[in-house]
């Protein structure tokens, strides 16, 4: 009589020790400081978004006739529907915040420098995907603000020279918002972006594993102590704890400040005060400050500069004596972003 474990081992020839060895990457000590574990936070929130998103998709119906009603059904009638919708909404908010904080940490510690330039660029792609997921997700609610937000967003895209009108038509499935627009936005939100992001996250993490985490040593650390700790179980415990804390935080936010539902979209009347989600306040204010085409082109230029920043930074460091110029650039950028966001949040128009 062959034991079930031996039977299984014969068919799945994986050695437990090998698995442990594979996953047991030594983790540098500085990861015990929580702000270095910020990359795991958006990854965890991404999983939360996938799970709650699949649940919501059971009841959501992406067409102008049914979308608002189905969101209302989820919010008011389905058991715990309000909870899952609110967790999805807050998960998106926290995910964008976590991605930005993670990016700031990487930027200010110079962790994007050679040989990690490509992983910075993959991270930028993930940032863009996250923002697009936020935009398309909000448009699915089909309430007044989300409808007009989508319309304005599509027209901003449409004002890009040359390719703008084409991009707008691809996004809306026609020259303007129509019967087939929501199903397009839904499939981008629920199928294309998540698939793309899973792929990017796999490469992002694979590159971290291949190159190792950038190592820091703080002055107050004991130089004689080992500089690494094992991934399993120490770092796994850290990540599991972060996950539970985030779940508690999400549940608390969902309960105290549940996702609301404004009036149904009315394509014939624009509300008096129209705002995008908070993470687009920056570009919204930027748009009001400059003329349409310049604002769009400058936004694209800034994004491109961020994308290739590791190379610009490398060039500055080779050619000049300002070795930490990126810190000054980063501080200015953060202040401008915070300033524009607060400005947009504070005024009605």
């Amino acid at each position: 009589m062959i034991s079930p474990i031996a039977w299984l081992k014969e068919r799945i020839p994986v050695d437990g020790d090998q698995l442990a060895e594979l996953s047991n990457e030594p983790v540098p000590n500085h990861l015990k400081r929580w702000w270095f574990a910020l990359g795991g936070t958006p990854a965890y929130l991404f999983v939360v978004q996938i799970v709650t998103g699949i649940l919501l998709a059971f009841y959501y119906e992406p067409s102008p006739r049914t979308a608002y009603g189905s969101v209302k059904y989820i919010t008011d009638t389905a058991a715990y529907g309000w909870y899952f919708r609110s967790v999805h909404k807050w998960g998106a908010t926290l995910m964008i915040a976590a991605v930005i904080l993670h990016q700031m940490r990487v930027f200010f510690t110079g962790a994007y420098r050679k040989p990690r330039e490509i992983n910075w660029m993959i991270g930028m792609c993930l940032l863009v995907c996250t923002l697009m997921a936020g935009f398309t997700g909000y448009s699915l609610v089909y309430e007044q603000l989300s409808y007009w937000g989508t319309t304005v967003g599509a027209n901003i895209g449409g004002s890009v020279p040359l390719i703008g009108p084409f991009m707008r038509e691809m996004m809306l499935g026609g020259e303007a918002y129509n019967e087939r627009t929501l199903s397009r936005l839904f499939i981008v939100h629920a199928a294309i972006l998540p698939t793309l992001m899973v792929g990017l996250i796999v490469v992002h993490i694979a590159l971290i594993r291949l190159q190792g985490v950038t190592e820091f040593q703080f002055k107050d650390e004991d130089q004689t102590k080992p500089r690494h700790f094992p991934f399993f179980p120490d770092h796994l415990y850290t990540e599991l704890s972060i996950g539970l804390v985030l779940m508690i935080l999400l549940s608390a936010l969902a309960t105290i400040l549940p996702a609301t539902l404004g009036p149904r979209a009315d394509p014939l009347s624009t509300p008096e005060v129209i705002k995008p989600e908070w993470f687009f306040y920056v570009s919204f204010r930027w748009l009001k400050l400059f003329s349409g085409t310049f604002a769009v082109l400058s936004t694209g230029f800034i994004a491109f500069t961020m994308f290739i920043w590791p190379f610009i930074d490398g060039w500055i460091r080779r050619k000049s004596k300002y070795q930490e110029a990126s810190v000054a650039v980063g501080i200015v950028a953060v202040l401008v972003i915070i300033g524009l966001t607060v400005w947009e949040a504070a005024v009605a128009h």
Binding site: V51, L55, F58, T77, A78, A79, Y80, G81, Y83, F84
Partner: peptide, 11 residues
């Protein structure tokens, strides 16, 4: 458990 209850037809 909440997810299971959510997916079960409401009424």
């Amino acid at each position: 458990a909440m997810a299971g209850r959510f997916l079960y037809p409401a009424r």
